[in-house]
Nucleic acid binder design. Structure first.
Length: 468
RNA sequence: GCGCCGAUAGCUCAAUUGGCAGAGCAUUUGACUCUUAAUCAACAGGUUCCGGGUUCAAGUCCCGGUCGGCGCACCA
């Protein structure tokens, strides 16, 4: 079948509804429009036919008559899902349905597969994710989820632009993956004959740009972590990281709650909304609690990084966690937090004062040597963001990397590698700086009320089907 | 990677205790000048995810595998 190379569409379904809302049943307008979309319903009835044309804005009825419509017989044989371009007058039928009275029409593209049951659509997860294009068309809520994701990212950019941030890009191919504790994907560069890792975080590169003089920067980009999938984890996901010179973690907390609340306002028009049937309040300011406060409350006794290690280990063992010999009180505190608190945190909250032991890139707390000026935001029982006053002392940074190396030697799987280039960058002078990372997919999940991260990723990572 | 659950027509789903594999929609054919998930009539549509096994008989029971969902782990 030869199909046209273009079609002079001049309006959308929703525009027709807005413009001719007042037209009476049986009324004519004399206005000829050219609309395009897919035919999703078709009711042929002898010498009349009614179709429902769906475009990106909504739907409009097509009203075809054998006396008026070119190639009427063929029109009645259109398949559901076919793209058509239609030209005709806007009328309202006797029964009151606003319609385009089809004068001429053409198939723009055939649909050789159907879009599922016209009532139930497509619900099989495997089919939906492997052929997302069909899911997106068949299930408007899928399209809405992705549209909301897009609106979230747009809002983030706009709010940062308003605050004089500039957007930058840093390498995805890295000789040394760093900036987080995670296993990387490894790939190979042929010309250099060397292996590169896909980035697990852009963090170190971004701070090097601050050293270079960019005082307010952000990057929105894909990061890759070689780990399992879950309703909240995709091996490649989108992260926004931003850095502000001269700020500390407390300045960054204010920005975090403002920007996230701003996203909710611009996408949903409110900072109070429902996530999975439960009210969620994004209104700033957000609660702030130290990790040790939360843990102490949960276990019913005072626990801090200065607590007795054996006691903390016992508390963890009682809760079924296998305690490693290499863990200090900092790691134990965080493990306790994860076991006793994380899942119960619903409205966004800054969990502050992270142990130094688990925060190799964050600056030492000004009031406690075993803590850092680091927070993580938890919301709906999961981590949403991570921020801190950046460690800008090259000597301390070297010592932290060396601690990581010791952990690796002690058998820890995921630790940071010593990055000499990064230490050298710090030696050129990183001003006091605060940094923030937000999991964009997770933020989008909350805003789009998506139960599963795959819903807000256009093409989530799937296991390929094996041959045979 | 481990555990639980699932996979039946293009789509959405049925199928009693192990007893001839079905419906609606879509497709095909026909009727119909105001339909709204149009209606009516008819035809067609199956490697019951794949491979073994038990049985007179397997969609159903058993074993192995594939993919997916959820939980755990890994990870944030």
């Amino acid at each position: 079948m030869t199909t046209p190379y273009n079609f002079p569409q001049d309006t959308y379904a929703s525009e027709i509804h807005e413009r001719f809302a007042d037209l009476d049943a049986g009324g004519e307008t004399g206005v000829v429009v050219a609309v395009a979309g897919r035919v999703m319903l078709l009711r042929a009835q002898g010498k009349l036919a009614f179709g429902t044309l769906v475009d990106s804005s909504g739907d409009i009825q097509l009203f075809a008559l054998s006396a008026v419509t070119a190639d009427f017989e063929e029109f009645t044989k259109l398949h559901l899902g076919d793209w058509v371009g239609v030209t005709g007058e806007v009328v309202r039928t006797k029964k009151g349905e606003l319609s385009v009275k089809v004068a001429s029409w053409q198939v723009l593209a055939e649909a050789r597969h159907n879009f599922g049951d016209k009532w139930a659509g497509i619900s099989d997860f495997d089919l939906r994710y492997r052929h997302r294009e069909a899911d997106l068309w068949a299930n408007p809520e899928s399209r809405q989820s992705l549209a909301r994701r897009s609106a979230v990212i747009r809002s983030l950019r706009e709010q940062l632009w308003e605050r004089r941030f500039i957007e930058v890009e840093t390498p995805i191919l890295n000789a040394i993956p760093s900036g987080a504790a995670a296993r990387p994907f490894v790939t190979h560069h042929n010309a250099f004959d060397v292996d590169f890792s896909l980035r697990i975080a852009p963090e170190l590169w971004l701070k090097r740009l601050v050293v270079g003089g960019f005082e307010r920067i952000f990057e929105i980009g894909r990061v890759f972590r070689n780990e399992g999938v879950s309703p909240r984890h995709n091996p490649e996901f989108t992260m926004i990281e931003l850095y502000v010179a001269y700020w500390d973690v407390y300045d960054m907390m204010r920005l975090t709650e403002e920007v996230c609340a701003g996203v909710a306002t611009s996408v949903l028009g409110t900072t109070t909304f429902e996530y999975q049937g439960r009210p969620l309040n994004f209104s700033a300011p957000w609660a702030r609690r130290s990790m040790s406060d939360l843990v102490s409350e949960a276990v019913g006794e005072e626990i801090t990084v200065h607590s007795d290690r054996a006691r903390m280990a016992t508390l963890l063992t009682d809760r079924g966690v296998e305690v490693q010999a290499s863990w200090g009180t900092g790691r134990l505190l965080m493990e306790l937090f994860e076991v006793t608190c994380e899942a119960d945190l619903w409205d966004p909250i800054f969990v502050t004062d992270f142990p130094l032991e688990v925060s190799p890139l964050a600056r030492r707390h000004r009031e406690d040597d075993l803590l850092t000026e680091r927070f993580e935001v938890y919301c709906a029982g999961r981590e949403l963001a991570n921020g801190f006053t950046e460690l800008n002392d090259p000597d301390d940074q070297r010592a932290r990397f060396e601690d990581q190396a010791r952990l690796k030697a002690a058998g820890e799987d995921e630790t940071m590698e010593i990055d000499e280039d990064y230490i050298k960058a710090l030696e050129w002078g990183l001003p006091p700086t605060a940094g923030l990372g937000i999991g964009v997919d997770r933020l989008a999940m909350l805003i789009a009320d998506a139960p599963n991260i795959r819903e807000i990723i256009a093409f989530p990572t799937l296991k390929p089907l094996r041959e045979g």
